[in-house]
C-alpha cells in the first residue's frame, strides 16, 4: 500500500512551479501524490486531506502570506480531528521558520532546498526507512 501525500497551494498565489516539481519528485520516489492546483483556501485543503485520507500534507506558498494561511490550515486540522503531519515550502524568510515550527509544521523547505533532501525528510516524516518505497 503506497503512502498518500497531498501537495496543496494555499492563498492567492499562482507560482506553482515549486509545488509541481516537488509533486513530481515524490511521485518518482514511489508515492501516491494528490495535487490540488493553485489558489486553494485552507478549508479546501483540509477537506481534500479528509476525503483523500492522506498520510502527509505539503503546503506551498510564495505570496508572503504563509503565516496566517498555514496557521489556519493547522487550526482546521485540529478542528477536524485529523492527525496528519505537515511540511511546507516556498519563499519563506529564515526568521519565519521558528514561527512555523511552533505552529506544528514539521519541516520547512525554503528556496534552494534540494529534492533529495525533501524526499529524505518526507521518508522520515512518514516513518519509513531508507530503502522503502521505490527509487529516489
Amino acid at each position: 500500500m503506497k503512502k498518500r501525500i497531498l501537495i496543496a497551494k494555499v492563498g492567492l498565489d499562482g507560482h506553482d512551479r515549486g509545488a509541481k516539481v516537488v509533486a513530481r519528485a515524490l511521485k518518482d520516489a514511489g508515492y501516491e501524490v494528490i495535487y490540488t492546483g493553485i489558489r486553494q483556501s485552507p478549508e479546501q485543503v483540509v477537506e481534500t486531506a479528509l476525503q483523500e485520507d492522506v498520510d502527509l500534507i505539503g503546503l506551498s506558498c510564495l505570496s508572503g502570506a504563509h503565516i496566517p494561511l498555514f496557521k489556519r490550515v493547522m487550526e482546521l486540522l485540529k478542528e477536524y480531528n485529523l492527525n496528519i503531519p505537515v511540511f511546507c515550502g516556498g519563499t519563506i524568510p529564515p526568521d519565519d521558520v521558528p514561527v512555523l515550527k511552533k505552529m506544528g509544521i514539521a519541516e520547512v523547505f525554503g528556496p534552494g532546498s534540494s529534492l533529495k533532501l525533501i524526499v529524505e525528510k518526507v521518508r522520515k516524516l512518514l516513518g519509513e526507512g531508507e530503502d522503502n518505497g521505490g527509487n529516489t
Partner: peptide, 14 residues
C-alpha cells in the same frame, strides 16, 4: 517503474 502516481483529476473540481 516506481509505483508512484500523480493524481491530478481533482484539480478541475476543487
Amino acid at each position: 517503474y516506481t509505483g508512484g502516481s500523480l493524481l491530478g483529476d481533482r484539480i478541475r473540481m476543487q
